[in-house]
């Protein structure tokens, strides 16, 4: 029985909630129990945004993540705020294009990826969230390509379906980053 408690955090506009929704849909497609809980309110307008995604074999109790098993971190304020909360042996995936701090905790695994740089190099700077997600999926060994594609189909509105391919590419760029 495994439970992934994934906290995604960054600035409003980085696609934090969307990346969370994609993760939740992946869980749903894999027949897991899932929950997705956003931060809401005035802080959404350009401030920090975060989102709690739980993917579990068990029924999900509280949708609020107090101690994430995985932290996907896309700005400095959330790095400082959330790293201390990550559970022991947990994972932190951080966008090293935006966060120049080194993680000091020895009991968790820090994975750095210059996601914003990679996304910019691929002509889609706003898809850093997908690059981050790809890297996380690899680290967690979660889902496979077909699951990712099905989840993208569920989350990308029909009128934007042409965006599926570039999103997939961005996820793969993150997944294959070494």
């Amino acid at each position: 029985m495994t439970t992934h408690s994934i906290l995604l955090s960054g600035f409003g506009g980085q696609g934090i909630l969307f990346a969370g929704k994609l993760l939740a849909y992946m869980g749903l497609i894999m027949d897991k129990n899932v929950s997705w809980l956003p931060s809401y309110g005035p802080e959404m307008r350009g401030g920090t945004a975060n989102c709690n995604v739980i993917i579990s074999d068990d029924t999900i109790g509280s949708p609020i993540i107090n101690n994430p098993s995985t932290l996907i971190c896309m700005n400095k304020p959330s790095f400082n705020k959330f790293v201390p909360m990550v559970e022991k042996n947990g994972l932190v995936v951080l966008d090293s294009s935006l966060i120049d701090i080194k993680g000091e905790r020895g009991d968790i695994n820090f994975v750095e990826i210059p996601a914003t740089q990679i996304a910019t190099d691929n002509q889609h700077p706003k898809l850093a969230n997908m690059v981050m997600l790809g890297r996380t999926l690899k680290e967690l060994n979660l889902g496979d390509e077909s699951v990712v594609i099905s989840a993208l189909k569920k989350t990308i509105p029909n009128r934007k379906i042409e965006m599926l391919e570039v999103n997939k590419k961005a996820i793969l760029a993150g997944y294959n980053f070494t």
Binding site: F18, A19, G20, P38, Y40, M44, K126, I156, M163
Partner: peptide, 10 residues
């Protein structure tokens, strides 16, 4: 609102 649509940023 809080609708998750990062695609729009593209």
């Amino acid at each position: 609102g809080t609708d998750c649509d990062s695609i729009k940023e593209e």
